[in-house]
């Protein structure tokens, strides 16, 4: 990992103490991201995606959360920084877009007032200047007639418009790091397409670093430069979008690709789902957490059950966490997995 990366996360662990035991939601995650680049984080429900994003924003300082590791943002470690300092960075240097804009917007204030408020926390400007800025931002995210819509309440907007307003709010302070957690999951597909286009354009314009979190492989493929695949709180594969879609090497990534019906290919008779159910994060399976569901675990001489595999490079920039040898993985992919996926 590059020492001077804009965002550099090292061995991040976020554990929660609960009555049932310790939930290891994020368990040793490392990645880095530059300005102007997009990282996609994918994984099934409960794999730790949202906990990671909230962790970066410093929003896990509750009693039962234990955060360790390092989160370097532009040369500062957020894990050791004071809560007050991290709070100031939120909104100015980093911002977040949530799945459900209604829950993160105040229902009793107009959309405009909320943007103005957020902007004035970080910029010492008059209300009228901030209002101009809010109108400008609403226009930039494609809200029609921003001059009059600025005085609307969130419930007067449609789902797509609320998501646009939320993006306007997040971008109003020109953040250098933007985290979007399932930004389009609640939207209709035609509106989702508009929002994805918008995010791509705005990122180019603002040159911010973007993390997009989703369970939809189509959405990550649309936006990401690099992709991180999470399973049970760990990164199990990391690589460029091309690595992950054209030469994936982890059996779980193969499973994700095989589960998904695709419009760009002929429909197969059967989908190839990952077997079984997601693991418990309290009693995480021994060794490779994926082993109870992995069709290849018996090819590793018992290692899969006994030892946690390391996340190791298979090619420059392409990392895989699996006990199978590189040759085994590539042979399996070429001969067994890819041919079946291609007929889809």
């Amino acid at each position: 990992m590059n020492e001077s990366a804009f965002l550099d996360v090292k061995d991040l662990k976020i554990h929660f103490s609960t009555d049932d035991g310790v939930v290891k939601s994020v368990d040793g995650l490392s990645f880095s991201l530059e300005r102007g680049k997009t990282l996609g984080i994918v994984g099934e429900s409960g794999s730790g995606k949202s906990v990671t994003s909230l962790g970066i924003l410093g929003l896990h300082r509750g009693k039962n959360a234990h955060v360790s590791g390092e989160i370097w943002l532009d040369g500062e470690d957020l894990v050791t920084a004071s809560q007050e300092h991290v709070r100031r960075l939120r909104g100015r240097k980093m911002a977040m877009i949530f799945q459900d804009p209604l829950s993160s917007m105040h229902p009793f204030y107009t959309v405009g007032d909320q943007i103005i408020e957020a902007y004035r926390i970080h910029h010492k400007v008059s209300k009228s200047v901030a209002r101009k800025h809010a109108i400008d931002m609403l226009g930039r995210v494609g809200i029609p007639e921003p001059k009059s819509r600025v005085d609307s309440y969130p419930h007067e907007f449609s789902g797509g418009m609320r998501q646009r307003a939320m993006i306007a709010m997040a971008l109003s302070c020109d953040p250098e790091l933007l985290i979007a957690d399932e930004p389009t999951t609640a939207l209709d597909v035609t509106v989702q397409a508009q929002i994805l286009d918008l995010m791509r354009d705005l990122q180019r314009e603002f040159n911010s670093a973007l993390i997009i979190i989703t369970h939809d492989l189509g959405v990550v493929a649309e936006l990401s430069d690099d992709i991180l695949v999470m399973y049970a709180g760990k990164c199990i594969e990391y690589g460029s979008a091309e690595d992950i879609f054209y030469r994936p090497e982890h059996p779980y990534t193969w499973g994700l690709l095989g589960s998904m019906p695709r419009l760009d290919r002929e429909p197969t008779e059967r989908l190839l789902p990952v077997k079984g159910t997601p693991p418990s994060l309290i009693n995480v399976p021994s060794g490779c957490a994926f082993h109870p569901r992995c069709p290849y675990s018996d090819l590793t001489d018992g290692q899969s059950k006994a030892e946690v595999p390391a996340l190791a490079p298979t090619d420059p920039g392409h990392l895989v966490r699996c006990h199978l040898s590189r040759t085994q993985r590539r042979t399996l992919w070429e001969n067994e997995v890819k041919p079946v996926l291609e007929t889809q």
Binding site: V189, T190, Q192, A193, L196, D216, L217, G218, V219, V220, A221, E222, S224, A241, E242, F245, L257, M260, R262, L263, D264
Partner: peptide
Amino acid sequence: NALLSAVPIPDPKAR
């Protein structure tokens, strides 16, 4: 046509 065209394709080349 619009609906089908809006579905994000899980292929970076489709971008």
